[in-house]
Design a protein around this nucleic acid. Structure first.
Lengths: 193, 193
DNA sequence: CCACAACCGTACCACTCGGTACAGATCCAC
DNA sequence: GTGGATCTGTACCGAGTGGTACGGTTGTGG
């Protein structure tokens, strides 16, 4: 039906994701986005709707790609292994050799002007969801006796999430994976049991 | 001498600081800034130079005001007390009852477009300086026998800074002081000695 | 009292922003 | 091969951006 699109929609989305990752939502202009995607504004609007929807799809891709470590970590056998895998995944993702430093979901829109509020809220939910999944995993660990009975899963999950966010900022600050791994080691010193 | 200015420059700067705090550098338009400051663009340019210099002065004010806890914490007698005071100060500053949540130096310009690069770099330096001061304090603690001889001051400082940044993100995410204090407790469980 | 210096407000500047109208190009189904 | 559907590029839109020119206003020093 009709003229087929001349660009690879997947590759274009990947490139848009990287721009958002490096520049944040507000800092990414349509000009830079479409230039990186190798298409014109018109094609972008036809394929993705508008800037906000492009960001939403880029965020989905981020969750399924670079941030998939967060979901994979939940499958580790013990709570400690989950925490460790989560944080080390965060380290690797926020310091990719050839890509932008930091975390898309943190740099995307931490502060919010009126018009970016929707995106801001979207990211708040995204980050909170990640924390909830971690909390549920730790709750399971308590039930399974993997964590002490008096351990507080919510508290532990919030602690790990806090470390993850902090790692994202440190990565944006210029710290490399080796230094961040040391920080993770330090953070896990007080881990229960 | 000429006509004296009709507004309180200190109060105007305070209000500008709060706008930057809530909106970030890019998200703060001159219209919103000057409206909050209660002056016109012309007066703002006459008094502060331009948007970037206004931000620099707002950042100075932030360091001397809301973020002064970071310097005060260094005066605590033990390394543990320093770490605790630092993080609890971060909690209180990032969750002010009537003010914007989060930390100006984190939300200000985490991601950087080309034109905000200067501000971005300024904030990177600011954050790194805070880490260095903490590191020096912990090094002193090792020398004084307050921390174990095999403790790594830089590593500990980076860990505490990471927690501070994470707390800022969690505050922007909606967590309150009580929940953040719990996280601080959890973080300090593994503190040496 | 008056000249000069500084401040204030309006009106404006070039530019960029996200977004769109429209015409031409390119394909598939019939 | 032709109609209709879709994609592409250009040219454009109104609104908002940071920043400024300029004339009117308000003060102080001589």
């Amino acid at each position: 039906m009709g003229r087929p699109r001349e660009f690879d929609i997947d590759q274009a989305l990947e490139r848009a994701m990287r721009v958002f990752w490096a520049r944040g939502y507000e800092g990414s202009s349509l000009a830079e986005l479409t230039s990186a995607m190798g298409i014109t504004k018109t094609s972008m609007y036809a394929a993705f709707g508008n800037k906000e929807q492009l960001f939403r799809k880029a965020l989905q891709r981020y969750g399924a790609g670079p941030a998939a470590y967060a979901t994979r970590a939940l499958e580790e056998p013990t709570a400690r292994a989950v925490a460790s895998a989560f944080l080390r995944g965060a380290v690797r993702t926020t310091t990719p050799p050839g890509g932008p430093s930091g975390c898309l979901t943190v740099q995307g829109a931490l502060a919010s002007s009126d018009e970016t509020q929707a995106v801001h809220d979207l990211l708040v939910d995204w980050r909170n969801d990640a924390g909830v999944r971690l909390e549920e995993r730790f709750r399971r660990a308590v039930n399974e006796g993997d964590l002490p009975r008096d351990a507080d899963p919510r508290r532990l999950a919030r602690f790990i999430m806090t470390m993850g966010f902090g790692i994202a900022v440190q990565a944006a600050n210029g710290l490399g994976p080796a230094e961040l791994d040391e920080i993770v080691d330090t953070a896990l010193l007080g881990w229960p049991a």
